[in-house]
Write a protein that binds this DNA or RNA. Structure first.
Length: 534
RNA sequence: GGUCCGGUAGCUUAGUCGGUUAAAGCGCUCGACUCAUAAUCGAAGGAUCGUGGGUUCAAGUCCCACCCGGACCA
């Protein structure tokens, strides 16, 4: 629909996992979306034509059952969930370009087109097979004996297992084992980080089983386009419905989808690596379609050291987290604390510590003190002055920043933030080393003073631009106070070296990152620090 | 049950092909400074590197077993 043609601009199509429409967005969802958004904003700020896809997985028995329990039609149910997710992404400042829902008519026809295309090109790839087993509705899967205790699935002890015999369409996944092994051998960066690749290599070495592609009794689903020999039409099984969203979002099978497909990177959680690195490439190969260039599996967030789970256990209210210091600060702390290539931890205590030390004390205060001195000693106008050699020390960190965000060595967003933090610390050290307030007392050292202050403002401006993908709103407040032209996010990230603050009229206003006020933690810290009673 | 990943100072982590006193940030303690958001700068303290064996002149770094956490598969 919006097939913008910018032939000379690199396109960058990144996707996130579609979220299952069975509950509200939580911390785990947020980490992935925020990370993907940072990458998208970074690429835009590097001049790319970015397309960020986010969406919902809305089919399946669980959705149908939950909707029934609440007495609403499944579509109405998922409509509501989708709105709640979209509202949350808006609050978090997720700059998605497209929001796909698997219940959209175009997605459904796209899935069917893909399946037909596979069947046409490789008639042997879909075949009928009957199967008998214990079916767990919670898992939406047949369970083996080892997972059954007292006749119930160990993961869903409140649900009753159903003995089911059914005839399904199967996909000949086993046929693609060699293809996939070759893919990972010749293109190791197809799945990163490396630990996840090793996992898949081990899995491939064990051999692949064919997988079910359709299911009986699956009413809330895309109708599987092939009819069984007994005349039955079944519902498309979850992964054959969900995975193609990345493709149908580009318009497939309609003309023009090739302008966006293949995706540059699928951002997913480590739990669904297998589906994206085994099943999805096999499906695409079977259909004779190009594969995505990369799959990136991020880790999980633990909450206060405990496992975070949507279905059982620990929860953190996203709205509360956002309200604490604002969406931007939450984005910053989350990505600074949680390595984007492995698991990380999050707690209210760390949140506050990180916010205070990095944003309020280091960066916020740096901006504050620098602007105060420009106002005090230079009537608020940044003086012209040559760049001191000391600033060259930042170059290595700028490089490290790009290394973390460009994807060339993986998507190490936390390393990008660490690099900026080092630059901030270096600027504060520079202030201490040059003591501009002392220099200002000596009329003979005006040139020196000007150089120090201009250098400080330039460093802050540089850091502000670099932080723009992470904190898109806060950063503009700083930018405005600096008196810099246009917006921070408009500044090309490859042209940081050309930042020249000469003549900017700074206006130190309210601190953009105020220190937290006294009784801070929403969790009962007071209670836990009190002496134990009884 | 199987495969894989992780277990390093109070907290979060870095430690390349095994090799001099195991590194950093935060927190804590002390000192300095006053431009600044009771911020900043400097210094000090703090780790028998999950446990137990083994290989080696030498192991956080390799091998085996076990314990704990996690993901996936059965």
């Amino acid at each position: 629909m919006t097939t913008r043609s910018k032939p000379d601009v690199p396109r960058f199509y990144l996707t996130t996992a579609i979220d299952y429409a069975n509950g509200d967005p939580h911390l785990g969802h947020a980490l992935e979306k925020i990370g993907a958004d940072v990458i998208a904003r970074y690429r835009r700020q590097c001049g790319d034509d970015v397309h960020l896809l986010i969406g919902m997985d809305e089919h399946g028995q669980k959705v149908q059952q939950t909707a029934a329990k609440e007495g609403v039609a499944p579509q109405a149910f998922t409509d509501n969930i989708a709105l709640r997710f979209q509202a949350m992404w808006a609050r978090l400042g997720i700059s998605y370009d497209q929001f796909i829902r698997t219940t959209e008519p175009h997605h459904k026809t796209g899935v069917q087109a893909l399946i037909r295309r596979i069947a046409e090109r490789n008639p042997d790839d879909f075949y009928e097979r009957s199967y008998t087993g214990m079916y767990c509705v919670g898992c939406e899967a047949f369970k083996q004996d080892a997972d059954i205790v007292d006749g119930k699935c160990v993961l869903h002890t409140t649900r009753t297992l159903e003995e089911v015999e059914e005839r399904n369409w199967f996909f000949r996944l086993s046929k693609y084992q060699g293809f996939l092994q070759n893919l990972l051998a010749t293109n190791p960066s197809f799945i990163e980080p490396e630990s996840r690749r090793n996992e898949i290599l081990g899995l491939l070495a064990q051999g692949l089983d064919d997988i079910s592609a359709s299911r009986a009794r699956l009413d809330w689903a895309v109708p599987f386009p092939l009819v069984l020999s007994n005349g039955e039409t079944q519902g498309t099984y979850v992964w054959f419905d969900a995975l193609p969203n990345y493709l149908t979002a580009t318009g497939f099978p309609d003309a023009g989808y090739e302008q966006r497909w293949p995706a540059d990177v699928h951002i997913i959680g480590k739990d669904i690596t297998r589906f994206h690195v085994v099943i999805w490439p096999a499906m695409l190969e079977a259909a004779g379609l190009p594969l995505p260039k990369q799959v990136w599996a991020h880790g999980f967030v633990q909450l206060g050291g405990e496992r975070f789970s949507k279905s059982a256990g620990v929860k953190l209210d996203l709205g509360e987290a956002i309200d604490r210091f604002g969406a931007d600060a939450f984005r910053y702390v989350l990505l600074r604390e949680v390595p984007f290539d492995s698991d990380g931890n999050f707690s209210w205590e760390r949140f506050e510590e990180r916010y205070t030390s990095d944003l309020a004390n280091a960066f916020g205060n740096l901006a504050s003190r620098a602007m105060a001195m420009v106002e005090k000693y230079c009537e608020g106008v940044v003086p012209a002055a040559p760049r001191p050699d000391a600033e060259l020390d930042d170059d290595a960190d700028v490089e490290a920043y790009h290394g973390g965000l460009s994807g060339t060595r993986g998507w190490l967003l936390h390393e990008g933030l660490a690099a900026v933090a080092r630059m901030t610390a270096r600027a504060n050290e520079y202030v201490a080393a040059t003591t501009p307030w002392a220099v200002a007392k000596d009329p003979g050292r005006v040139a020196e003073l000007h150089q120090i202050l201009a250098s400080l403002i330039r460093r802050i401006a540089k850091q502000t631009v670099m932080l723009a993908p992470f904190m898109p709103h806060k950063v503009e407040a700083v930018w405005a106070q600096l008196g810099a032209p246009a917006t921070a996010s408009a500044w090309h990230l490859m042209e940081l070296a050309s930042l020249n603050p000469t003549g900017w009229r700074v206006q130190k206003g309210e601190g953009v990152f105020p220190r937290p006020v006294a009784p801070t933690l929403p969790s009962p810290t007071a209670a836990s620090s009190a002496p134990p009673t009884s």
